[in-house]
Amino acid sequence: MTAMDQITSTATNPAQATPLLSVRELSKRYGSHIGCTDISFDLYPGEVMGIVGESGSGKSTLLNCMAGHIAPDTGQVIFETRADGPRDTVTMSEPERRMLGRTDWAFVHQHARDGLRMGVSAGGNVGERLMAVGARHYGDIRAQATDWLDRVEIDPARIDDRPTTFSGGMQQRLQIARNLVTGPRLVFMDEPTGGLDVSVQARLLDLVRGLVRDMGLSAIIVTHDLAVVRLLADRLMVMKSGRVVEAGLTDQVLDDPQHAYSQLLVSSVLQV
């Protein structure tokens, strides 16, 4: 049995588990302007949720509130931690939240350069996250970095090159390797395919889909691209003006949207 098979077989059955993440009445205002308001949902182990909506709908604000990058005004973000069971990450201490961000959580930024250290080699970018959780053996770290570069389809011969010498698609794949090397359980993704050309997008989506399935990851993906959510997400939340207007099974929301705004969103996609 290979390592990947072991990971797959331990993935939890989504039908009978407790939520990995429970968001309760989360709200964030910017002065009198609503960022996002009254957001509640449960995410179960192995589930991938897409959040769609136009620019300014509050989807990125929501993602950043959940990931601890922005402090919400009210509400709870309860994560099922390995050691202590469910914990509200909003009221957690900063060091605890940072530790979570280095171990069980991962955040894939839209622009790879926001998530990478551009002055450090590709191998260093992957190894740094391992070192942050205590890895010290140089040979092991380099071996793991090599393995991950290969998994995200970057030639391991490029391990000592800096990401500045990589194409946009390669940088994005390197960012994914850096994030997944520590075996997180929850991945936040902010427009992971934004700004990439379509052939590179397809390759990246295929890769992410395989990794999510093989590692049993849960993920929350913010995007305005409905094709991305159809491919990757099990379920969907549609946001407008800071509120969730519709939520449900991805293909049901896309093929039989109920809310006026979801109908507009789905019917506005250009056919190719």
Partner: peptide
């Protein structure tokens, strides 16, 4: 009952 099922139940 599909009319009351959660997305993850339909996926399963």
């Amino acid at each position: 009952d599909l009319t009351k099922a959660e997305p993850r139940e339909i996926i399963a």
